[in-house]
Simulated scan of single mutants.
Amino acid sequence: MRDYGQFCPIARSSELLAERWTPIIVRNLLNGCRTFNEIRQGAPGISTALLTQRLDVLERHGVLRRTVKGRGVTYELTEMGQALRAVLDAMGQWGAHWLEIEPHHLDPAYVLWATMKLVDPDRIPAGTTVVRFELRDRPADNHWMLLQRPRSELCTRSSGYDEDLVCRTDSATLVDLHLKRLSYPAALRTGRVELLGPPALTRQFRSWFRTSPFADYVA
């Protein structure tokens, strides 16, 4: 870890939080991730070894606590870690306003993970609704979203459930919808989103997802 040798609170905070992937891990924990795999799913590209190291450092500094139950391990932020929500919110607001989204930012695995995190559990149908996403920018891959209360799940393999809807779109369109740069009616009208399934579900689909909390800060 970097040591700036300065008593300044910004310098001391940076020694812990400005390490690669650390803010992403904290963001995922703030978004409800509790297991190692859930945290890693929201951080495509991080290695198992590096995620383990970062979690150990955060635990050692009191930012999170690890709980072992049998063979299962869960992670949750402490009061110290929860206090970072304001820090991450400020970073998100600043980035949404000042930084452009470039093509290399549109990792399909992350875009769909972020889409899942915007599911409004109060608006989805009771039981389990399975939506298969076909992304035009990653045609060889399929992703299934299992919409259910209290938490939805994203899978990269068939879950065994019958598919209720198929959504054909691309990563850039999903981002534009998240950030309110595009409306669902416009996306459907222009063919940027195609929904296949029962009319009742295709009509409801757009109401199941919230917009990004940073949408209002986009320049």
Rank of each mutant, 00 (worst) to 15 (best):
M1D: 10
G5V: 01
F7V: 12
C8P: 00
S14F: 12
L17E: 06
R20H: 08
T22H: 02
P23R: 05
P23I: 05
P23F: 08
I24Q: 13
I24R: 14
R27G: 09
N31V: 00
G32L: 10
Q41M: 13
G42A: 05
A43H: 08
P44K: 02
T48V: 11
A49S: 15
L50K: 12
L51S: 06
L51F: 08
T52M: 00
T52Q: 11
T52N: 09
Q53W: 12
L55D: 09
L55Q: 07
D56H: 13
D56E: 12
V57P: 02
E59G: 07
G62T: 11
G62D: 03
L64I: 14
R66K: 14
T67R: 15
V68I: 14
G70D: 00
G70L: 03
G72S: 14
T74K: 09
G81F: 03
R85A: 09
M91Y: 15
W94D: 11
W94R: 14
A96D: 05
A96S: 05
L99V: 13
L99N: 11
E100G: 00
H104M: 06
H104Y: 13
L106A: 07
A109W: 03
W113Q: 07
A114M: 14
A114C: 07
M116V: 14
K117W: 04
K117H: 15
V119S: 08
D120Y: 02
D120F: 06
D122G: 13
D122M: 12
A126C: 05
A126M: 14
G127L: 11
T128M: 09
T129S: 07
V130S: 03
R132T: 03
E134C: 04
D137P: 06
P139M: 06
D141S: 10
H143L: 10
L147N: 00
P150S: 06
S152Y: 01
L154D: 10
C155Q: 15
R157N: 11
S158G: 15
S159M: 03
S159H: 02
Y161A: 01
Y161I: 00
D164W: 00
C167D: 08
C167K: 01
R168H: 13
T169A: 08
A172P: 01
L174H: 14
D176M: 13
L177D: 05
R181D: 09
L182R: 04
L182D: 04
Y184D: 01
A186Q: 15
L188C: 01
R189Q: 12
G191Q: 01
V193N: 00
V193S: 00
L195E: 01
P199W: 01
P199D: 07
A200M: 10
A200Y: 11
R203G: 09
F214W: 15
A215W: 05
Y217V: 04
Y217Q: 11
V218P: 04
